[in-house]
C-alpha cells in the first residue's frame, strides 16, 4: 500500500506524530510520502524512518515544499523501539560552520572506477550523519555529481532537504557542458565558493 501524508503547516512535533500514526495503519509493506514545509521536519522524519529501519530519501521540491519518502515495512515498524520523549522535535541538525567540498567525481587518487564508488559511498554516508553540513560545494569534476550521477543526486537532494545548501560551480558546469543538467542545488560562483570556505570552521574534502 502507498500513502501520502500532508503535514504542511504543522508545527513540530506534529509531522512526526502524524506520520507515526500513519505508519501504524500500514497492514502491508508500502511507500509513505510525507509532505512538510521545513527542513527541520525533514530531519526529524528521517530520524523516525531510521529508528524504524525504513529506507528513506527526501527532496526539496520548492520553497517551503519538502517530500520525505519512506519504504514502510510492517514488521520493521512494529519491531522498532519507541523513541525517547523529546527526540521528535530536535533542534536544527545543521552545523553552520561545516562545509563539504567535492572537487571531483571520485574520492582519492588511483583506480577511476573505485574512486567513483568511494565518492558515492562518501555522499551516502554523509546522509547518515547526525549533523548536516551547512554547505556542500561541488566544483571541477565534482559538477558531475549534481548533474549526471543519479545516486549522488538522490543523496544530495536528501541533504538539501535537511537544510544543506548544495552549490555547483557555474564555470565548471559551463566548461563540461552540464549547465542544463543540474538536478540539485544552485549554480554558484567563485566569490560565493571562497566566501563559504573562508567562513567555515571545518572543511571536509574527501
Amino acid at each position: 500500500m502507498d500513502k501520502v501524508v500532508d503535514c504542511r503547516g504543522m508545527a513540530c512535533p506534529l509531522p512526526v506524530i502524524t506520520s507515526k500514526k500513519a505508519i501504524a495503519e500500514f497492514t502491508e509493506d508500502g511507500t509513505m510520502t510525507v509532505l512538510v514545509d521545513n527542513d527541520i521536519a525533514v530531519q526529524n522524519l528521517t530520524r523516525l524512518a531510521d529508528h524504524n529501519g525504513f529506507a528513506v530519501h527526501s527532496a526539496k521540491k520548492a520553497e517551503k515544499e519538502y517530500e520525505v519518502v519512506m519504504q514502510v515495512t510492517v514488521g520493521g515498524g512494529e519491531a522498532a523501539p519507541e523513541p525517547q520523549e523529546g527526540w521528535t522535535c530536535l533542534p536544527d541538525a545543521r552545523r553552520k560552520d561545516l562545509v563539504v567540498v567535492l572537487s571531483s567525481d571520485r574520492m582519492g587518487s588511483g583506480d577511476e572506477a573505485l574512486g567513483k564508488k568511494l565518492m558515492n559511498a562518501f555522499i551516502f554516508a554523509l546522509t547518515s550523519q547526525d549533523a548536516v553540513p551547512d554547505k556542500i560545494i561541488c566544483y571541477n569534476m565534482g559538477a558531475y555529481l549534481t548533474t549526471e550521477n543519479e545516486k549522488a543526486i538522490e543523496d544530495l537532494k536528501s541533504l538539501e532537504a535537511a537544510g544543506a545548501t548544495v552549490m555547483t560551480c557555474g564555470t565548471c558546469l559551463d566548461y563540461y557542458g552540464l549547465k542544463e543538467k543540474l538536478q540539485v542545488g544552485i549554480i554558484s560562483n567563485m566569490y560565493d565558493i571562497v566566501e563559504a570556505q573562508m567562513q567555515a570552521g571545518t572543511i571536509i574534502r574527501p
Binding site: 560551480c169 549554480i187 560562483n189 567563485m190
Partner: peptide, 8 residues
C-alpha cells in the same frame, strides 16, 4: 558580481 550575478 557587479557585472553579473551569474558565474564564469
Amino acid at each position: 558580481r557587479e557585472i553579473s550575478a551569474g558565474c564564469g
